[in-house]
């Protein structure tokens, strides 16, 4: 009887000591009083002229390495052929030098698709990170903590949209942040800022008076790879079924 009493008291003491400790380990939740903004982007494919200003502006604004194959946003040319083949090509001048493009009679239709991180509601990259270095902010923007990232590339593999790359200098994963440092100050992401045809629209999804909400009201939109249930927050209008 006494032993039982003792053990229960001991347990009480131990838990009493651990309680505050574990509380400190978990930390207090981020004290964000106002309803946070939920940022998203709309892309109107029929307006994109493939000029690549967004890609250049992104590289400059975010100090993305100039060499090819490192992109936070990029543009793909889709050429759908009569025999069912679809050719997808990153049109960046650093990869495909510009040339006189011939009208190819086998091509049924052809168009440009700007791509970037979809800032998913259920981001697979966050789930696979072994060290918890990638997370979503209250605004729904997925960020990488480059002090914690160990460069294991799991997230790069896990991203169904190919939106991440390994930074060649930092040796950590890097990706689009919707220009976090700009949008939190009420500015537009650099790619949206420079787009000459307003093919990119940016705004707050939780506000009814935002350009993005209007875009979603006026256009039939779709997201990339909806079957994966990642719930992207980049909405495409005029999205062709061939686009993956």
């Amino acid at each position: 009887m006494k032993r039982r009493l003792f053990i229960s008291r001991l347990l009480g003491i131990v838990l009493g000591l651990l309680g505050p400790l574990s509380g400190r380990l978990r930390g207090s939740p981020a004290g964000n009083a106002a309803t946070p903004k939920r940022f998203g982007m709309g892309i109107q494919i029929d307006k994109c002229i493939g000029c690549g200003r967004c890609v250049d502006a992104c590289k400059e604004e975010n100090a993305v390495p100039q060499e090819p194959f490192y992109f936070r946003t990029w543009i793909e040319r889709y050429s759908v052929k009569a025999d069912g083949d679809t050719i997808v090509q990153n049109i960046d001048e650093r990869i495909t030098p510009p040339r006189e493009v011939e009208v190819d009679r086998d091509v049924l239709r052809s168009f440009f698709v700007p791509k970037l991180c979809n800032q998913c509601e259920n981001p697979p990259c966050v789930q696979v990170c072994p060290v918890g270095a990638t997370f979503a902010t209250p605004e729904g923007i997925v960020l990488v903590d480059d002090k914690r990232c160990i460069g294991c590339r799991y997230c790069i593999q896990a991203c169904p949209y190919g939106a991440r790359y390994l930074h060649p200098v930092k040796k950590t994963a890097d990706k689009c942040t919707f220009c976090y440092h700009r949008v939190t100050k009420g500015m537009l992401p650099a790619c949206v800022e420079v787009c000459p045809t307003q093919a990119r629209v940016f705004g707050d999804l939780s506000s009814t008076a935002s350009p993005l909400t209007r875009f979603r009201r006026m256009n039939k939109t779709a997201v990339l790879k909806p079957h994966l249930n990642t719930e992207p927050r980049v909405y495409y209008s005029d999205l062709d079924g061939e686009v993956r």
């Binding site: 380990l25 930390g27 440092h181």
Partner: peptide, 23 residues
């Protein structure tokens, strides 16, 4: 010890990055 501190620190670092396009 504190994961949320990592999150806060990263957010602060990202938010403080230099702006190059004035708008």
């Amino acid at each position: 010890k504190d994961h949320s501190r990592h999150v806060q620190a990263t957010i602060a670092r990202e938010a403080a990055l230099p702006i190059r396009f004035a708008g």
